[in-house]
């Protein structure tokens, strides 16, 4: 049975008679093992001291030693695992961001993120939910002169934010609701809508369709990086990690047969689908597309016919509603 060897003080308990409240022990241990500067700093932190006021030298009054390890070393097992486990998870969720930044820089951002937004969810699936937001919040406000000298766009951090948004959304589409057991709106169903009702129709996007607007061509970059990852070791593709130049790009994500699909969009296509996403009628959505389009009315009409045929084939629309 463990024995306490400490003298009476404010941090002392009497095992079996007056143990410390469980709540305080848990708050203390959590503060200690999640402190970014390590166990000793964690013990000295305000949060830990508020729960159990012991110094690192007195920690055996809370956690006993073993024959091989002292109390701080034993707490270190949990402290080491805390960040290592969560960093590994973030690398799994954002593999291409991690490869692009390199291990050291990715870990730097990820550690900052875990400190600002520690997990409050029962599931690790939510761990990266605010990572892109964190990167955006902590993005330098001044242009990066050193990056410019190195040939990079001075606002390259925005590229990383975009890439993180893409990878996070891929994961959301993968495990979110899909159309595998549902029938979306078919091309025939659209064609059967009387012309006088067509313009007033509202097309509801399938729950797995996500529309993304980026400041950088991250979808192409993502494709290139995946090709590098998949390349045969005997026939590798050149590992080109150069950050591309800024260019506004548009992508739809969806899912078929439980596999996430990426659809690069032209600007008017994005405008059309975004209008549907916000609940607009076909008339308003086409007007939004036309506003962002160099095509003539006739050319746009032909293009619209083709787009709707493609999107219905890919189950982009869940339903059609009329006012």
């Amino acid at each position: 049975m463990p024995q306490s060897s400490a003298q009476n003080d404010s941090a002392e308990s009497q095992p079996g008679v007056n143990p410390r409240p469980l709540d305080l022990v848990e708050r203390w241990m959590q503060s200690v093992i999640t402190h970014p500067a390590g166990v000793a700093a964690g013990i000295a932190s305000d949060a830990a001291q508020a729960a159990i006021p012991v110094s690192p030298d007195e920690v055996e009054r809370v956690v006993t030693r073993s024959q091989a390890l002292d109390s701080i070393e034993r707490l270190g097992v949990y402290a080491n695992a805390y960040y290592a486990r969560l960093l590994e998870c973030l690398r799994d969720v954002f593999p291409i961001v991690a490869r692009t930044l390199g291990e050291e820089l990715f870990d730097h951002f990820a550690l900052g993120y875990l400190q600002k937004y520690p997990s409050q969810s029962y599931t690790l699936c939510e761990l990266g939910a605010r990572f892109a937001q964190f990167l955006d919040e902590t993005r330098p406000t001044e242009p990066d002169a050193a990056a410019a000298e190195a040939g990079l766009s001075p606002d390259w951090p925005r590229f990383v934010v975009d890439l993180a948004r893409l990878e996070w959304t891929v994961g959301q589409v993968y495990d979110g609701p899909g159309m595998e057991n549902r029938q979306g709106v078919l091309a025939d169903a659209l064609a059967a809508i009387p012309p006088d009702r067509w313009l007033a129709a509202r097309l509801q996007l399938a729950p797995c369709v996500r529309l993304l607007l980026f400041r950088y061509p991250v979808n192409d970059f993502y494709t290139k990086m995946r090709a590098i990852d998949r390349a045969d070791d005997d026939d590798p593709i050149e590992d080109d990690l150069a950050i591309p130049r800024p260019e506004e790009t548009y992508v739809a994500l969806s899912r078929r047969d439980y596999v996430v699909r990426r659809y690069p969009l032209a600007k008017p296509q994005y405008a059309l689908l975004a209008a549907f996403e916000s609940g607009a009628t076909v008339e308003a959505a086409i007007a939004a597309a036309a506003a962002d389009c160099d095509l003539s009315d006739d050319e746009l009409a032909v293009a619209l016919h083709r787009w709707f045929a493609d999107w219905t084939a890919d189950q982009f629309f869940l339903s059609v509603a009329f006012d």
């Binding site: 049975m1 400490a6 956690v63 073993s66 034993r74 097992v77 949990y78």
Partner: peptide, 10 residues
């Protein structure tokens, strides 16, 4: 990986 001074049973 740790045991507590406040433990009173195995």
């Amino acid at each position: 990986y740790v045991t507590f001074a406040d433990s009173t049973m195995s």
